[in-house]
Amino acid sequence: MPSIIVKPKNLKEIWKILPELPAKRKYLSGGTDLVASANNRLDDSGCWIDITDISDLRKITETKDKIFIGAGVKIAELKESKLVAKWLPALYSAVDKFASPSLRNMATLGGNAGTASPCGDGICALCSERAEIILEHFGKRRKVPLIDFFTGPKKTVLRKDELIIGFEMPKWTHSGVHLKLGPRTDFAISKAAVSICIELVKGKICSCSIALASVAPTIVMARKVSKFLETKSLTSETVEKASEIIKTEISPITDIRSEAEYRREITGILLQRALTALSN
């Protein structure tokens, strides 16, 4: 555990105090990753900056063409948001598949991005929702497509002290779903997960984005199969073909959680299930 924890009230205070804090410092949000690693003596920070009191990070808001979700919004709170239910169906569907009910009361989307696990459910769904991530560094903001934010397992483009402010998603009329397969139905780390958003016009897919978790070193977009699906009707033939294409598009590895071939196979099956669910 760090020997000092600071709890700034707003963003301005963070940037003011940072230079005086111990060099080994980290932001503390829901703690479900950070405190767990400290409990296992895997965190050597001298200082944590507790950002849970910063109200700017706790908001879900809308503009004419975008939805904003603050980095500090709890996973459970997504389920209670009408904006999320209406505009972000894949993210909404990911909530029930995320960890356990009590962890969902603690964990945040900012922490999910900060951890940058290739299995992250929140970030996988956000990528299919075409999210951009908003970052701030000493008062200066920048925006990065979320999919480009991740550079490897637990690696991101975040600079030292840079803070995740939140995520911005375009408003478009679409349906979406997040499906994952793990060793048990609930409360499991996935062997593979598929997040998909599609816009159907008169039975034809006119826009499609698919993000995958646990099949590569980071969350990845399945661009080839998305392109194939655009302009197609959702027939059983299309669904079958799409599930074959996605298997050629990924190169998963074998690790303690699953085998490469199994992952490839179930990714096809998950896509099939997702498309079937969306066609009904």
Partner: peptide, 26 residues
């Protein structure tokens, strides 16, 4: 101490949380 077992569960403002992963200052 990893959020898996729930033996440490308490209610904070009526919501169930894993107290092993929450800092007391919170």
């Amino acid at each position: 101490l990893e959020g898996e077992c729930g033996a440490c569960m308490v209610l904070v403002d009526a919501k169930a949380v894993n107290s092993c992963l929450m800092m007391a200052v919170h």
